[in-house]
Design a protein around this nucleic acid. Sequence first.
DNA 1: ATATCACGGATATTAGATATCCGGATTATC
DNA 2: GATAATCCGGATATCTAATATCCGTGATAT
Lengths: 162, 162
Amino acid sequence: MRLSEGVEWGLHCAVLVALLPPDRALPAGRLADYHGVPPAYLAKHLQALSRAQILDSVPGPRGGYRLARPATDVTVLDVVEAIDGTEPAFRCTEIRRQGPTRLATREYRVPCSIHVVMASAEDAWRAELRRTSIADLVGMVGASAPPASLAKGLDWFQEVLP
Amino acid sequence: MRLSEGVEWGLHCAVLVALLPPDRALPAGRLADYHGVPPAYLAKHLQALSRAQILDSVPGPRGGYRLARPATDVTVLDVVEAIDGTEPAFRCTEIRRQGPTRLATREYRVPCSIHVVMASAEDAWRAELRRTSIADLVGMVGASAPPASLAKGLDWFQEVLP
DNA sequence: ATATCACGGATATTAGATATCCGGATTATC
DNA sequence: GATAATCCGGATATCTAATATCCGTGATAT
């Protein structure tokens, strides 16, 4: 079981644009520079975040991406699902209905108990991801990152924002 | 994010061998018949369950697989991890340390907050899967499956166990 | 008018999951 | 003891999804 690497990129990008001065946007290329990831591929993931209305995209010079809503209203789960999709990790193929002892379809009114357990675990996973917003992550950075990190980040904004 | 289909097969097989009469074993081929899945590939997953000491393997005629421990002592998580591995779904590549604003390695003593959140969600997922044992699943089948299903299963045992 | 940027489609590459086969080792049964 | 059934691990083939790039189009600030 493996999450797309794009999930990590998307979350870090969301945190970074949450720190932007009001009404400014960061182009995809700058976000790729900042994180040291392939620009063309990151662009694809940012487009997914834009379609999910997590980011706003601004075309043209001084354009780029910014948050579409307050950082408090964007959960980690929102970003994960925008990039990785909402398909469950466990997909019940109903193998209980295969093989020599299978019954008629109408007999299977009760759900597959294995399916139920796996689904409830994924619910717990999602619930946990919903508990944290991008604003929380920004706060965590402020509270626990080396201060030099923030300072350097601010310098960098001055440099790259035209 | 996607779990191997083998996880579903492994769980259904664990439930089935938990229903075996004492000291009997089911060959991989019969388990594949019962579930309508490719025998050669299911065999690979059963070998993984055997290595994880969830199943006992018995070579030779009248051999096959049986539970290595009481069904109450085998959790759903045990089976999932035996087949899917224990690698986390989210793998932090520390992209916060890349790019133009990176600091010296020694500055990063606090953990990446995104990593922490993703890891806690996976902990919640695992905790949920640990709450249910194979014995619980067997009980659920007994309590909620169509009775005809169990009856047919028992007939089938008589037929295939030499 | 021009340069900057997002967007979506097409396509190539790679890694991992799915699937099969075979030779060797083990053991119950005759 | 011979035979047949079974597990085991390695080698290999195939298929799917993730990763990655490129380009033409449209929008817009300067």
